[in-house]
Computed example of a mutant assay.
Amino acid sequence: MTARTALIVGASRSLGLGLATEYARRGWDVIGTVRGDRRTGLHDLAEASGGRVTVESLDMTKPEQVATLRERLAGHTLDLLFVNAAITRGNIPVGDVPTEMFVEVVVTNALSPMRVIESLRPLVAPTGTIGVMSSRQGSLSLNTNGGQDVYRASKSALNQLMRSYAARYADAAHTLLLICPGHVRTELGGPEAPLTIDQSIPGAVETINRHSGEPGLKFLNYQDQPVPW
Protein backbone atom coordinates (compact mmCIF):
# COMPACT_ATOMS: atom_id res chain seq x y z
CA MET A 1 0.00 0.00 0.00
CA THR A 2 1.33 3.45 -0.90
CA ALA A 3 2.40 5.44 2.13
CA ARG A 4 0.43 8.53 2.99
CA THR A 5 2.20 11.87 2.72
CA ALA A 6 2.25 14.71 5.25
CA LEU A 7 3.66 18.18 4.74
CA ILE A 8 4.57 19.76 8.08
CA VAL A 9 5.31 23.47 7.72
CA GLY A 10 7.60 24.57 10.53
CA ALA A 11 9.22 21.25 11.48
CA SER A 12 12.73 22.20 12.53
CA ARG A 13 12.19 21.79 16.28
CA SER A 14 9.74 21.49 19.16
CA LEU A 15 6.15 20.67 18.23
CA GLY A 16 6.75 20.65 14.49
CA LEU A 17 9.68 18.26 14.76
CA GLY A 18 7.59 16.14 17.11
CA LEU A 19 4.85 15.93 14.48
CA ALA A 20 7.31 14.98 11.75
CA THR A 21 8.88 12.33 13.99
CA GLU A 22 5.53 10.83 14.99
CA TYR A 23 4.17 10.66 11.46
CA ALA A 24 7.39 9.06 10.19
CA ARG A 25 7.21 6.54 13.05
CA ARG A 26 3.70 5.64 11.88
CA GLY A 27 4.92 4.90 8.36
CA TRP A 28 4.01 8.14 6.61
CA ASP A 29 6.20 9.93 4.10
CA VAL A 30 6.95 13.32 5.63
CA ILE A 31 8.00 16.56 3.99
CA GLY A 32 9.09 19.08 6.61
CA THR A 33 10.05 22.70 6.15
CA VAL A 34 12.73 24.71 7.91
CA ARG A 35 13.74 28.35 7.70
CA GLY A 36 17.12 29.11 6.19
CA ASP A 37 20.08 26.84 5.65
CA ARG A 38 21.12 25.95 9.20
CA ARG A 39 21.12 22.33 10.30
CA THR A 40 18.19 21.31 12.48
CA GLY A 41 16.73 18.30 14.21
CA LEU A 42 14.66 17.68 11.08
CA HIS A 43 17.85 17.12 9.09
CA ASP A 44 18.92 14.50 11.63
CA LEU A 45 15.52 12.83 11.38
CA ALA A 46 15.69 12.83 7.58
CA GLU A 47 19.14 11.23 7.57
CA ALA A 48 17.96 8.44 9.84
CA SER A 49 14.66 7.86 8.02
CA GLY A 50 15.83 5.90 4.98
CA GLY A 51 14.25 8.41 2.63
CA ARG A 52 10.90 8.62 4.44
CA VAL A 53 11.54 12.21 5.59
CA THR A 54 12.65 15.03 3.31
CA VAL A 55 13.53 18.62 4.12
CA GLU A 56 12.36 21.74 2.27
CA SER A 57 13.38 25.33 2.94
CA LEU A 58 10.61 27.86 3.58
CA ASP A 59 10.14 31.17 5.32
CA MET A 60 6.37 31.25 5.21
CA THR A 61 6.25 35.00 5.89
CA LYS A 62 7.64 35.48 2.37
CA PRO A 63 4.93 34.84 -0.25
CA GLU A 64 7.47 34.30 -3.01
CA GLN A 65 8.96 31.38 -1.06
CA VAL A 66 5.51 29.87 -0.58
CA ALA A 67 4.91 30.09 -4.34
CA THR A 68 8.28 28.47 -5.04
CA LEU A 69 7.55 25.62 -2.62
CA ARG A 70 4.26 24.98 -4.38
CA GLU A 71 6.14 24.69 -7.68
CA ARG A 72 8.66 22.27 -6.17
CA LEU A 73 5.90 20.08 -4.75
CA ALA A 74 3.70 20.16 -7.85
CA GLY A 75 3.99 16.40 -8.39
CA HIS A 76 2.96 15.47 -4.84
CA THR A 77 -0.44 14.63 -3.43
CA LEU A 78 -0.71 15.49 0.25
CA ASP A 79 -2.90 13.51 2.62
CA LEU A 80 -2.12 16.05 5.32
CA LEU A 81 -1.04 19.68 5.14
CA PHE A 82 -0.27 20.91 8.64
CA VAL A 83 1.04 24.39 9.45
CA ASN A 84 2.92 24.61 12.73
CA ALA A 85 4.48 27.99 13.30
CA ALA A 86 4.10 30.63 15.97
CA ILE A 87 6.09 33.29 17.75
CA THR A 88 5.53 35.35 20.85
CA ARG A 89 7.35 38.46 21.90
CA GLY A 90 6.68 38.36 25.60
CA ASN A 91 3.87 39.18 28.00
CA ILE A 92 3.48 42.88 27.24
CA PRO A 93 0.25 44.85 27.78
CA VAL A 94 -1.16 45.73 24.38
CA GLY A 95 -0.87 49.47 25.00
CA ASP A 96 2.90 49.08 25.32
CA VAL A 97 3.38 46.89 22.25
CA PRO A 98 5.28 48.55 19.39
CA THR A 99 3.42 48.51 16.09
CA GLU A 100 6.23 46.58 14.42
CA MET A 101 6.02 43.82 17.05
CA PHE A 102 2.25 43.55 16.70
CA VAL A 103 2.53 43.26 12.93
CA GLU A 104 5.31 40.66 13.16
CA VAL A 105 3.35 38.40 15.50
CA VAL A 106 0.05 38.60 13.63
CA VAL A 107 1.68 38.16 10.21
CA THR A 108 3.62 35.12 11.44
CA ASN A 109 0.87 33.48 13.48
CA ALA A 110 -2.27 34.29 11.47
CA LEU A 111 -1.71 35.71 7.98
CA SER A 112 1.19 33.51 6.89
CA PRO A 113 -0.39 30.14 7.79
CA MET A 114 -3.48 31.10 5.78
CA ARG A 115 -1.35 32.14 2.80
CA VAL A 116 0.32 28.74 2.92
CA ILE A 117 -3.03 26.97 3.04
CA GLU A 118 -4.53 29.02 0.23
CA SER A 119 -1.47 28.39 -1.95
CA LEU A 120 -0.99 24.69 -1.25
CA ARG A 121 -4.59 23.50 -0.94
CA PRO A 122 -4.63 22.24 -4.58
CA LEU A 123 -1.97 19.70 -3.59
CA VAL A 124 -4.15 18.21 -0.85
CA ALA A 125 -6.08 15.06 -1.76
CA PRO A 126 -9.82 15.63 -2.23
CA THR A 127 -10.57 13.98 1.12
CA GLY A 128 -7.31 15.01 2.78
CA THR A 129 -6.77 17.06 5.92
CA ILE A 130 -5.65 20.66 6.37
CA GLY A 131 -4.62 21.53 9.91
CA VAL A 132 -3.08 24.41 11.82
CA MET A 133 -1.54 24.51 15.29
CA SER A 134 -3.71 26.85 17.31
CA SER A 135 -3.99 27.36 21.08
CA ARG A 136 -6.58 27.65 23.82
CA GLN A 137 -5.18 31.15 24.20
CA GLY A 138 -7.00 31.94 20.96
CA SER A 139 -10.33 31.14 22.61
CA LEU A 140 -12.36 34.24 23.43
CA SER A 141 -14.55 32.48 25.98
CA LEU A 142 -11.61 30.94 27.85
CA ASN A 143 -9.78 34.26 28.26
CA THR A 144 -10.66 35.03 31.85
CA ASN A 145 -7.27 36.15 33.15
CA GLY A 146 -5.71 38.14 30.28
CA GLY A 147 -2.00 38.28 29.58
CA GLN A 148 -0.06 37.46 26.42
CA ASP A 149 -2.25 40.01 24.65
CA VAL A 150 -0.71 39.96 21.20
CA TYR A 151 -0.16 36.20 21.09
CA ARG A 152 -3.79 35.65 22.12
CA ALA A 153 -4.98 38.11 19.49
CA SER A 154 -2.92 36.42 16.78
CA LYS A 155 -4.36 32.99 17.60
CA SER A 156 -7.91 34.38 17.72
CA ALA A 157 -7.27 35.94 14.31
CA LEU A 158 -5.99 32.59 13.02
CA ASN A 159 -9.13 30.85 14.25
CA GLN A 160 -11.36 33.47 12.63
CA LEU A 161 -9.49 33.26 9.35
CA MET A 162 -9.86 29.47 9.34
CA ARG A 163 -13.60 29.89 9.87
CA SER A 164 -13.73 32.23 6.90
CA TYR A 165 -11.71 29.74 4.87
CA ALA A 166 -14.08 26.92 5.83
CA ALA A 167 -17.07 29.01 4.75
CA ARG A 168 -15.44 29.98 1.47
CA TYR A 169 -14.71 26.36 0.58
CA ALA A 170 -17.81 24.86 2.18
CA ASP A 171 -18.35 22.54 -0.80
CA ALA A 172 -14.90 20.95 -0.44
CA ALA A 173 -14.50 17.61 1.31
CA HIS A 174 -11.30 18.52 3.17
CA THR A 175 -11.09 17.92 6.90
CA LEU A 176 -10.15 21.25 8.55
CA LEU A 177 -8.64 21.22 12.03
CA LEU A 178 -7.40 23.78 14.50
CA ILE A 179 -5.33 21.83 17.04
CA CYS A 180 -4.45 22.95 20.56
CA PRO A 181 -1.43 20.93 21.76
CA GLY A 182 -1.91 21.83 25.41
CA HIS A 183 0.59 23.76 27.51
CA VAL A 184 3.82 22.14 26.35
CA ARG A 185 7.36 22.57 27.64
CA THR A 186 8.87 24.36 24.64
CA GLU A 187 10.62 27.68 24.12
CA LEU A 188 7.21 29.24 23.63
CA GLY A 189 5.42 27.31 26.40
CA GLY A 190 8.16 27.83 28.97
CA PRO A 191 10.09 25.46 31.25
CA GLU A 192 7.26 25.18 33.81
CA ALA A 193 4.66 23.88 31.34
CA PRO A 194 3.05 20.64 32.54
CA LEU A 195 3.33 18.66 29.29
CA THR A 196 6.32 17.37 27.37
CA ILE A 197 6.33 17.09 23.59
CA ASP A 198 6.17 13.31 23.97
CA GLN A 199 3.01 13.66 26.06
CA SER A 200 1.30 16.07 23.67
CA ILE A 201 2.18 15.11 20.12
CA PRO A 202 1.06 11.46 19.94
CA GLY A 203 -2.37 12.55 21.14
CA ALA A 204 -2.43 15.40 18.65
CA VAL A 205 -1.61 13.00 15.82
CA GLU A 206 -4.27 10.56 17.00
CA THR A 207 -6.79 13.40 17.01
CA ILE A 208 -5.82 14.55 13.52
CA ASN A 209 -5.97 11.04 12.10
CA ARG A 210 -9.21 10.15 13.87
CA HIS A 211 -11.07 12.93 12.06
CA SER A 212 -9.64 12.16 8.62
CA GLY A 213 -12.42 12.08 6.05
CA GLU A 214 -14.79 14.28 8.08
CA PRO A 215 -15.48 17.46 6.09
CA GLY A 216 -15.74 20.78 7.89
CA LEU A 217 -13.85 22.69 10.57
CA LYS A 218 -13.21 21.62 14.17
CA PHE A 219 -11.25 23.27 17.00
CA LEU A 220 -9.87 20.42 19.15
CA ASN A 221 -7.18 19.83 21.72
CA TYR A 222 -4.58 17.06 21.74
CA GLN A 223 -6.98 14.85 23.69
CA ASP A 224 -9.66 15.16 20.99
CA GLN A 225 -11.79 17.47 23.14
CA PRO A 226 -13.55 20.50 21.62
CA VAL A 227 -12.03 23.86 22.50
CA PRO A 228 -14.58 26.69 22.93
CA TRP A 229 -14.33 29.44 20.33
Rank of each mutant, 00 (worst) to 15 (best):
A170L: 03
E214S: 05
E64G: 02
Y222W: 10
D96F: 06
G41E: 09
R52Q: 14
T33W: 11
I31L: 15
N159R: 09
E104Y: 11
T99K: 10
A204R: 01
E56Y: 07
A153R: 03
T54H: 06
S156R: 14
V116T: 08
A170G: 03
I179D: 00
E22H: 02
E22F: 02
R136Q: 11
D59C: 03
A24F: 12
T2P: 13
N143Y: 13
V124I: 08
M133Y: 07
H211P: 00
E56C: 05
M133V: 12
P181A: 01
N109D: 14
I130C: 03
Y23W: 15
D44S: 10
T68E: 15
L111N: 08
I208E: 00
Q65K: 09
Q65C: 04
A85M: 04
A204L: 01
R13I: 02
V83Q: 09
G75T: 14
G75A: 14
L19Q: 04
T108S: 13
R136K: 12
R210K: 03
V55Q: 09
R152I: 07
H211G: 00
G90S: 10
S139D: 13
G203T: 06
L80F: 06
N84P: 00
V97S: 11
N84C: 09
N145R: 15
Y165Q: 07
V124F: 12
R152P: 01
P191D: 13
A157Y: 14
V9T: 10
S14V: 00
H183C: 01
I130P: 04
M1A: 13
D224N: 11
V124S: 05
L78H: 07
L123A: 08
A86W: 13
R168Y: 07
M114Q: 04
Y23M: 03
S156I: 11
N159H: 14
I87T: 15
D44N: 05
V184E: 00
A167N: 10
D44K: 07
A20E: 11
E214I: 01
G16S: 06
A67E: 15
A125L: 09
G203M: 04
A173E: 15
Q148M: 11
S57F: 07
A125M: 10
E206K: 01
G18C: 02
L58Y: 14
Y165N: 09
V107Y: 12
N109L: 03
Q65F: 06
M162R: 10
R38W: 00
L176I: 10
D149R: 03
I92W: 11
T108Q: 04
L15Q: 03
A20D: 10
H211I: 04
A67I: 08
Q223E: 08
S134R: 10
P202M: 01
T175N: 04
A67C: 02
P93T: 14
M114D: 04
E47G: 12
W229M: 09
Y165I: 01
L111H: 12
A85T: 15
A24E: 15
S57L: 06
C180T: 11
E64L: 02
S135T: 08
H43V: 02
F82Q: 12
A67K: 13
